[in-house]
Amino acid sequence: MKFTVYLAGEIHTSWREELIDKAQALDLPLEFVGPMTDHERSDNIGEAIMGTQPSSIAKDEAASQINNLRTELLMKKSDLVIALFGEKYKQWNTAMDASAAISLQKPLILIRPENLHHPLKELSNKANVTVETVNQALKVLTYVLD
């Protein structure tokens, strides 16, 4: 049986590729999906589809409608969500995606560094498992699939 994993979280580092490569090396029966990781494409998709918008706010709104649709569709089809909170970037989308996973009753593995324990304590308490590294999340997947 193959499981689909939605990889939520910041798009500025290679954590997704690291997790995917390691999961493939272990021959885990997983398929991975996630948000649009091309930041420029994500920001401009509204105008690419609906044409030039009258303001930067309208441009953001048009793009967010399409990005939210993508996230909802892919997350609903997923068996599990892994949400990574990094240390460097603002994490609003990660928080939104983790909350959506909880609302959809999708199993959730939360990855967050120890120094984010306090600000994420409530969200962490709602996740099925909270770990600090991508490798720990991979070990959870390996155990679950063993």
Rank of each mutant, 00 (worst) to 15 (best):
T71R: 13
I82R: 02
I20G: 04
K59H: 08
P35T: 06
E72P: 02
R16Q: 05
E18T: 05
E132L: 00
H39R: 00
N68H: 11
A101I: 08
D27H: 07
L141Q: 02
E40C: 07
G34V: 05
Q136C: 13
K106D: 14
I45C: 01
Q24T: 10
K90E: 05
L116P: 04
V131R: 12
S124F: 11
H118M: 15
F32Y: 00
S124R: 12
D27V: 00
I111S: 03
V144P: 07
P29L: 11
D43Q: 06
L120E: 12
H117E: 15
H12Q: 00
A95R: 12
K139S: 03
S78N: 05
E72D: 12
S103E: 15
W15D: 04
S99P: 11
L108G: 10
P54N: 13
T94C: 03
E47D: 11
L141S: 11
S14A: 12
H117C: 12
Q91E: 00
K77H: 15
V140C: 03
N115W: 09
K77A: 15
R16A: 09
K90C: 08
K77G: 15
I66A: 01
D97F: 12
E17T: 09
S14K: 08
I102H: 14
N128D: 15
T94I: 08
Q91N: 00
R112M: 11
D146Q: 06
I20C: 02
L108N: 10
W15E: 07
Q105A: 12
H39V: 04
E18Y: 03
I20S: 00
K139I: 14
T130V: 10
T13R: 11
Q105Y: 07
K106W: 07
E40P: 05
I45A: 04
D79Q: 04
V134F: 12
T71F: 10
V131G: 02
L73A: 13
L84V: 11
N128K: 14
E114N: 09
